[in-house]
Computed example of a mutant assay.
Amino acid sequence: MTLTFLDLAPAQQDLLESLAPDSNHLVSGQPGTGKSVLAMHRAALLDLMGHSTVLLARSNLLRQQLAADAVAVGSSVPVLTFHRWVINWYQRATGTAPGRTEDGLFDWLELMSAAMSVGLGQLEQLVVDEGQDLPQQFYQLCRVLGIRMTVFADEQQRITDTQSTLAEIEKAMGSTTRHEITVNQRNSRPVAVLAGHFHVDGDPPLLPDRDGPVPQLLRHTGGRQPLAGWLSAYATAYPRRSIGVILRHTRAQTELFAEVSRPPHDLQAQMYIGNAPEGPYRTLTPGKKGISIINRASVKGLEFDTVIVPDTHIDSGDPTAAELRMLYYVMTTRARQELYFCYSGDREPPILADVPARMLRRSMM
Rank of each mutant, 00 (worst) to 15 (best):
R241M: 10
L256H: 04
R262L: 00
G274I: 07
E259Q: 15
Q270H: 08
S232W: 14
Q268S: 12
M271C: 14
L267A: 01
Q268A: 12
A237C: 04
E255V: 09
P277R: 13
L247G: 08
T250F: 00
Y272N: 06
Y238S: 02
T236A: 09
P263F: 10
T250D: 06
R251G: 12
S232T: 13
P264N: 12
A233S: 13
N275L: 04
D266S: 14
A235M: 03
L267K: 02
A276V: 10
N275W: 11
L247F: 08
Q253W: 05
Y272H: 15
V260K: 04
S242P: 01
P263N: 10
H249K: 12
L256C: 07
T236Q: 11
R241V: 10
A252R: 12
P263A: 09
R262F: 03
P239Q: 10
D266C: 11
V260A: 01
I243V: 05
H265S: 08
A269P: 10
Q253S: 11
S242M: 03
S242I: 04
R262W: 03
F257K: 08
L247C: 06
P277Q: 10
A258N: 13
R262Y: 06
Y238G: 01
E255G: 07
L247V: 12
V245H: 03
S261H: 14
Q270E: 13
T254F: 00
R262P: 01
G244Q: 10
Y238I: 02
A235H: 12
I243T: 03
I243S: 00
Y272T: 07
R240W: 11
A269D: 06
A237Q: 14
H249E: 11
T236W: 10
I273W: 02
T236P: 01
P264C: 10
I273E: 01
I243A: 00
Q268R: 14
A258K: 13
F257T: 03
P277M: 04
A252H: 15
Q268W: 11
V260N: 01
I246C: 04
